[in-house]
Design a protein around this nucleic acid. Sequence first.
DNA 1: CTGAAAGCGCTTACAG
DNA 2: CTGAAAGCGCTTACAG
Lengths: 336, 336
Amino acid sequence: MDEVAAAAGVSRATVSRVINNAPTVEAKIRERVQRAISATGYVVNSAARTLVTRRTGSVALVISEPEQREYDSSFLNRIFTDPFFGRITAGAQSALRPHDVHLVILPTDSSDHHQVVRYLRQGHVDGVLLISSHDEDPLPEQVHALGIPAVMSARPAAAIPASFVHTDQRLGARLAAEHLIRRGCTRLATVSGPLDMPAGQERLDGFRSFLQRRGLADVPCVEGDFTRAGGEDAARRLLAEHPGVDGLFVANDLMAEGAMLVLHDLGRRVPDDVAVIGFDDSSAALACRPPLTTVRQPVEEMAAEMAELLLAHIADPDRLPRSVSFQPTLVIRGSA
Amino acid sequence: MDEVAAAAGVSRATVSRVINNAPTVEAKIRERVQRAISATGYVVNSAARTLVTRRTGSVALVISEPEQREYDSSFLNRIFTDPFFGRITAGAQSALRPHDVHLVILPTDSSDHHQVVRYLRQGHVDGVLLISSHDEDPLPEQVHALGIPAVMSARPAAAIPASFVHTDQRLGARLAAEHLIRRGCTRLATVSGPLDMPAGQERLDGFRSFLQRRGLADVPCVEGDFTRAGGEDAARRLLAEHPGVDGLFVANDLMAEGAMLVLHDLGRRVPDDVAVIGFDDSSAALACRPPLTTVRQPVEEMAAEMAELLLAHIADPDRLPRSVSFQPTLVIRGSA
DNA sequence: CTGAAAGCGCTTACAG
DNA sequence: CTGAAAGCGCTTACAG
């Protein structure tokens, strides 16, 4: 920087001003400095800048899962190949990129929370996007206690004031139930997500309570784990106990893909013998044969909105928390 | 830090020493400082530390693709939901995590290279893991010119000295060809990857040249793009022109999944009518019915090795470049 | 083994 | 509009 200042015949302060586009620099000097910058190939040192501005230009995307049996590459593998998390990452990146803000992705389980908290406290990032899917997860409160700008992926279980985005899961499940009824299915069943996850619980509630109002109580349910293999297992068990099922709601697309595979193995035709509806509208939906009818969540847009909210909180720390809600929609394809 | 020093009755230098586990601190003092740290809740400021140590504790994972029609969320979406890149990320993370090194993922196309280069020059990271899949990609050379520690995902096209990892793609393709022949297939064909990518070209070469030696010349080939939808298209075209095909090698699993879908639509039984072999052994292989026989690349292990190599280069900038090679293996499942 | 001091490379009131 | 100077919060020779 001294070199640039010398080459341009100005002070370091002025060099700094042109780098940061301060309006108070005379055009001629600005140009002279710019030439000196190109000539010397100078670039700012981001650590030095961060030290004084208190801004890093990075945010963390924390993906918090319940404790894993083994925190290893199989956990990381599941996270990084999950189409849902992939869409979140893509949505967040696309919103952040224009602002030149970078994303550090931190998958974590509860055995690992302290590492994440330490990382955040060390000031590596300006804020955090927190994807927490379990009721009992203490991380949202811990992050909130840190006082660092944060946006959550759903209403936090704890009563903390924080911005979050939201989809009406119950409404989504109801859309699925309505469609199955409309199709004339009479023996409905569902593969739910994990019932200790709000997303799992709410989709089941929404599905069941709509059917109950239509006089259909006690719809069979087997709990799955939101993975494809888990969906296969759950569907196999469900179909073994309830072979007559003709309409199946599966709480996410990955499990639905597994369920379709099982139906195929069992020689059941979809949708003629069994109509199937998934949830998410992820890429897995198009990998099914027939293509999967599913409840769409605009995941990319939600993640982008989380990023925008976070940027706003970083720019103005006194900004009041707000939540923004997205509507699920039914995407009708071949499976129901 | 002053606060901690005062509370422990020592200098800041000593506080720094205990934080960094310098061996030359008396046990009693060390303990006193540690208590003061817990009492005050002190954590280091990473920007200040980086400014003096020249270490950030982060590395970049740069995923360089050819120029996109639109650099937007659909590009990011493809990258972040691609099982191959997901495995790379997981493998790199799992190797880096024990060293407390963080990963910032930078998908980029050629319109965007200057941003990546600027980011790297600003010193945000200690090194870069570069996934570059195109022959003409100038990024490996640019990164090398920066003088920042880097490890490549394959032998760089340019003659630059750099560490890289490698799988023998030709051998992998040959494994597929051998297996198809052994099965008794006589009318072979292939869906290749993009032929401007070494991985696409080499798999095709390996497949064809083995067959040629067996007297099978001019095996039909349609070029695909490594996506599932691209695999569907390519398979459809191939089968329209060559309906008699009884053995199909598809250059990655995602395209193979698409090809299997097309075969299903066409009423062809797999493997009885057509045997199908993929490449990668990604999660897509298990989403096929029947499950996909495929050439396994140990992608996670390769990415972990890249990370280890990078860490070694960061620790010792004078270390000589080396390459480490992995063997592909055939994983036999139901499709062939 | 410990401390005083210099220095990492920036930005930003403050004065002019 | 520009510059001299202080200061961001650490680490690390250097001296003792």
